[in-house]
């Protein structure tokens, strides 16, 4: 189970409306423009800006 192709085709960053990169193994959707990482829990993307973290936080922690 993973995020469906149908959803990935229309999902955008809620902050900038830009494209997202889906990292299935890490269960993350990443907006490179905003440097934000959105988690995927139970196959459901959590597209809440205040529950995202930055790429800096991801790679410094």
């Amino acid at each position: 189970m993973s995020v469906s192709r149908d959803l990935l085709d229309i999902l955008v960053c809620p902050k900038c409306r830009g494209e997202l990169d889906y990292h299935e193994a890490e269960k993350q959707l990443i907006c490179l423009a905003c440097q934000l990482v959105y988690p995927v829990e139970k196959d459901v993307p959590i597209m809440l800006i205040d529950q995202s973290h930055t790429l800096d936080e991801q790679y410094s922690g």
Binding site: L11, C13, M47, L48
Partner: peptide
Amino acid sequence: VDLTCGDANELPYDA
């Protein structure tokens, strides 16, 4: 059905 957790103030979907 595709579910998303999010805020309708900033829908994370294409126009």
